[in-house]
Nucleic acid binder design. Structure first.
Lengths: 225, 225
DNA sequence: GTGTGCATTATTGTAAACAATGTTGTTCAC
DNA sequence: GTGAACAACATTGTTTACAATAATGCACAC
């Protein structure tokens, strides 16, 4: 039995298709591809140095994940989620992440509390120094930490997939200069509630935060487009 | 512009891969394939009379959907969800479907009310006559109807995917002879609450029902295995 | 008799060629 | 000049063949 000693690293035993899917997913979520941008197979082959089969498999994967849409005989493009769908996503996140926050409050240990409080500190500092990028990163980390600490599997998976889908709205919303200042206390309340091991308070804090995100998204984007 | 007149029928413009994926999904959900059963590409080619590329694409799709799991160089098999995951799925469904029930109560029109009440009648009769299959079908239809009436898109999609994953538990639970009798009043309360256009009551009814499903699943399956 | 190593087989992963489809640009009739 | 038919091109869908990998069975040494 040698297979359990095999390197399970990023490219050790991962198929080309999975590798391409990961990199393409990351590129889309990072905003390297604009919504509705065409994804021509030939270009992706060159870009990722992979075979056509791998590229096609990757596109199929991301299509099911909702990041890409395909039209028969016309190819694939980055899916553009409209405002209504983005708002629905935030609503679903509210329902699921508040559930996970409650579970996290029940299960949290000292390590988890240290992790959450540390992220709270980072956020505070980021607001002080006006470092939007750092705040945004800590924001992602905090939500992820709560999901991790919940110990659940299904709900976090769903949330992660949905978060990837409306990344564009999150990014553009986070660019508003005063947004961190308003969401900071909501995030800190989440940290405190979970660390206080109060499930109901944690769920309420998470729900309140995401309702705030919902409103901010709606107001900000209904004006523009 | 002729393409908008093109037949969009089941096999008119649907790729082989999609066709295989649909049929395979249906077969798994219907229980034609046992959990952990291997899905050898050659067999599927013969079974669905499709090319290997189509079969591989279909397997990739179902893998992302969580119905199939693939191990590199060892092929695909029907994914077996364990009890813990099945319970998590019911919890997520409770969070999402209660949300949709509330929304359905806000939006329901006369057609929707007729549809729900008709399904309630079917369920009542099925319990009277002891027709478990009819009850099971109406059960699925009722949950689907509430999702439809909610007018939402994201949450129903997630719910449908999750429902497909733990179909095995639902089927085996539904086989319990007294189960329909206990869940009938819960279902009828959902119908009444939504038709009464009372969002909070509808959400509570749906949540109560799925918590009942949660408990029944836990008790029934922790005993056995 | 048991266990290890090797050869065989079954199965999937990858690549390349071919066919079908949609798109675009051009020409010709009016 | 405008519109329609047509031809050339670009792109995806499909099939085929080939390579790589893991599972299986057998022989041989001890």
């Amino acid at each position: 039995m040698t297979q359990e000693a095999v390197e399970q690293g990023p490219q050790g035993s991962v198929s080309d298709a999975d590798r391409v899917a990961s990199r393409l997913r990351q590129a889309i979520v990072a905003g390297d591809f604009a919504p509705r941008q065409r994804l021509v197979e030939t270009d992706l082959i060159e870009m990722f140095d992979a075979s056509r089969g791998a590229v096609r498999a990757a596109l199929a994967t991301l299509t099911v994940e909702g990041l890409v849409e395909k039209i028969r005989n016309r190819g694939a493009r980055v899916r553009a989620v409209d405002l209504d769908e983005a708002l629905e996503i935030v609503e679903v996140r509210a329902a699921l992440e508040s559930m996970c926050a409650a579970r996290a409050a029940e299960r949290i240990d000292d390590d988890g509390m240290a992790r959450l409080r540390s992220l709270g500190e980072v956020m505070r500092e980021a607001v002080d120094t006006g470092d939007g990028e750092a705040y945004s990163q800590a924001n992602r980390d905090l939500h992820q930490a709560v999901l991790d600490i919940s110990g659940a599997k299904v709900a976090p998976d769903v949330v992660q997939r949905l978060r990837a889908q409306n990344v564009r709205y999150r990014i553009r919303l986070a660019m508003q200069p005063h947004r961190p200042a308003t969401s900071l206390p909501e995030h800190l309340e989440i940290v405190e509630a979970v660390c206080a091991k109060d499930p109901e308070r944690a769920a309420n804090a998470m729900r309140a935060h995401l309702e705030s995100v919902f409103e901010a998204t709606r107001e900000y984007f209904t004006e523009r487009k």
